[in-house]
């Protein structure tokens, strides 16, 4: 194994460089003292300070988090129900249509979803006078429709892996189907539900296209704000904002990885110990 796969390592380095040099340069330039984003003017944290005192940014962040939270929660409830239905009920009238409709947003171009949502909201406002003003409600509704499918797919695949006999065992021990769902099925698939929620939350948080179609005056989410600011030229405070987001997400991912890894290792050790007791 002394022969080093030079070619492979080179390709790998190029790949990583391609991914991470832009992010690194953005982080470096967020500490730039100069007003010009691409000219180094010495180290400074002034953009972070100005960012935190910028009400526009704070408001956009709060709105984004609110939309992401509500839409992820609703999408998780609906998506879980759809996932369970698709996994459990293999034969019912219109299953193909239902399955197709649920997964359509996955392949639908975002622009189409955005435009159709916009037209739908306009027609709806014409007919029943609701939603009167586009903003939080319309963005949230649009986000629910396209993030639900991710929850559905995660939950459905977890349900298909699940050992069905544990549900039968609970039924056999006296539980009605709804009690089985509450006591057994939902707790067992809960990790899938949580990861579905996280995915829906993330997708909602960074969506630009659909949000820009369904938003209204005064409702600017963080990605929309960044997008509109960039149109006027990249300023260092955007770099600072993006750096904060990268660092937050990075810490979250690394922490989750460490926790999961530890739990998995402990589980393996315990399983091995349990097994040896038989031998």
């Amino acid at each position: 194994m002394n022969r080093r796969p030079v070619f492979l390592i080179t390709v790998l380095c190029f790949g990583f460089a391609f991914f991470y040099i832009p992010i690194l340069s953005m982080i470096v330039y967020s500490f730039n003292a100069s007003r010009l984003a691409t000219v180094w003017g010495g180290f400074s944290t002034r953009w972070y300070v100005s960012l935190l005192s910028n009400d526009q940014v704070i408001n956009a962040l709060v709105l984004s988090l609110k939309i992401a939270f509500v839409s992820a929660s609703v999408a998780t409830i609906l998506g879980t129900m759809a996932g369970i239905t698709l996994a459990r009920f293999t034969k019912f009238r219109g299953r193909m249509v239902f399955s197709g409709l649920v997964t359509a947003p996955l392949v639908m171009p975002e622009v189409i979803t955005g435009i159709s949502s916009l037209i739908f909201f306009i027609i709806l406002a014409d007919w029943i006078g609701w939603p009167g003003q586009r903003g939080f409600t319309t963005i949230t509704l649009a986000h629910i429709t396209f993030s639900m499918v991710f929850v559905t797919i995660i939950v459905q695949s977890r349900m298909l892996q699940m050992d069905r006999t544990i549900e039968e065992a609970a039924m056999d021990l006296g539980s009605r189907p709804w009690q089985v769902m509450k006591d057994i099925t939902l707790p067992v698939i809960s990790p899938a539900i949580v990861s579905g929620w996280l995915l829906a939350f993330t997708i909602s948080l960074d969506d630009v296209v659909i949000t820009s179609f369904t938003t209204g005056p005064g409702s600017t989410t963080l990605p929309l704000l960044i997008w509109s600011k960039v149109k006027l030229g990249v300023t260092p405070d955007i770099n600072a904002l993006a750096t904060l987001m990268v660092v937050t997400v990075g810490i979250g991912v690394v922490a989750a990885g460490i926790i999961l890894n530890r739990a998995e290792r402990r589980r393996l050790i315990e399983e091995r110990m349990a097994h040896e007791r038989d031998g």
Binding site: D163, T165, E168, A169, D172
Partner: peptide
């Protein structure tokens, strides 16, 4: 009550 082949422990 039934004892399942896979034991079906929760």
């Amino acid at each position: 009550h039934m004892m399942f082949q896979s034991y079906a422990i929760f």
